[in-house]
Design a protein around this nucleic acid. Sequence first.
DNA 1: ATCAAGTTTGACCATCCAGTCAAGAACCAA
DNA 2: TTGGTTCTTGACTGGATGGTCAAACTTGAT
Lengths: 216, 216
Amino acid sequence: MRAPRKTAAEKPGTPARGPRSRIQQRNRQIILDAALEVFSTHGFRGATLDQIASEAGLSKPNLLYYFDSKDAIHRDLLTRLLDTWLDPLRMLDADGEPQAEIMAYMRRKLEMSRDYPRESRLFANEILQGAPRIEHFIRNDLRALVTEKAQLLAGWSQAGRIAPVDPYHLIFSIWALTQHYADFAAQIGMIRGDSHDPLDGAEVFLEQLYTRLLAP
Amino acid sequence: MRAPRKTAAEKPGTPARGPRSRIQQRNRQIILDAALEVFSTHGFRGATLDQIASEAGLSKPNLLYYFDSKDAIHRDLLTRLLDTWLDPLRMLDADGEPQAEIMAYMRRKLEMSRDYPRESRLFANEILQGAPRIEHFIRNDLRALVTEKAQLLAGWSQAGRIAPVDPYHLIFSIWALTQHYADFAAQIGMIRGDSHDPLDGAEVFLEQLYTRLLAP
DNA sequence: ATCAAGTTTGACCATCCAGTCAAGAACCAA
DNA sequence: TTGGTTCTTGACTGGATGGTCAAACTTGAT
């Protein structure tokens, strides 16, 4: 009776599956959205359940009716995030035109900073703290994907299809440049004026940068 | 008797000045160093006085003999950091050779990521949270400096001495690319292997990048 | 050696906060 | 309408944490 719809498939640790009532689905979504807002700006320890509850317009015990713990909410957010975090890089196509592929990857990452800045900050917070909760993801999934794509990039370099560049630093540079617009948005806003869109001009600049960097 | 050497010059808010005993100087330094370690990885809320005390090898009440509060330690760290945070950009010389000046600025920032990664992460944490404690610094000091240097860069662009680039995004790109190696060091380490120096190859890559970007 | 000032700490307090619980309210199928 | 299920919450608990304090210890100038 503690957790709703407790079925065999919903053991703790197993992501909750199966059908949920409309109220369940709606409130879980509201809670996750509120929690994303709070966790992404205050970090895990800095966030309180009361803050999240207030942001969600629900009572604190009510949150804990839908999620087992503060940690469970955070874990859920991270899990959903990581599921899609790799997609842009995964789409880098070995059969495509090298420059266009890299440019498209950069554009996809920039879009993520524009459309999901809170997710980016949640991730940044996690890395800053030493990535304690996603270490396995980085060491396994992310590492494997980066290694694979770095080899692809290295191949393009050696074939003279792009300039000879260190493929790892090329990937890191795309992460750094695109995520900066989400993670440091507060700073950029204060410098350029808060009404100014932080990403204004970013795409043109980054296209210019990578066009010049990659030209063979 | 609560605070040591309480003189008129040491009102709260005023940075403590005047002579301090050797023990004072030594222990304040030890505390600040321990606090930097803890704050930079766990953030302000995530850090506890017990953690800092343990890291410093002192008792918790002893910390509070040297600093009025947890907040005061954090404020002290930030103040010291901001004092030097602007220096690399400030040194960008209007009378120098444009490309060499920008390259030297990039190198100075990269050096800071190498030599002071904890300070970089402390700063990053603060910005992620919306920069509540350093808003005035960013809106005033940093904003003025960036505006000034952006005009300098714009002048160089218009004079054809460097390629025509958006000066603000040029500055942001240097921040993003250099600070990434400090702020996301954990991720880089997990991908490239923890024994590998995260900054290995970074300087060469960034020189290549900015050489190609800035060539008129 | 002496003693006043500076330094250290065990014990303590007040608050905050994650999580519990039992009772009540809303919902829905029959 | 009825009765069981799902949802909601006020009141509470235990532990963590920032901060206090008085007493004890150390230091150094005389």
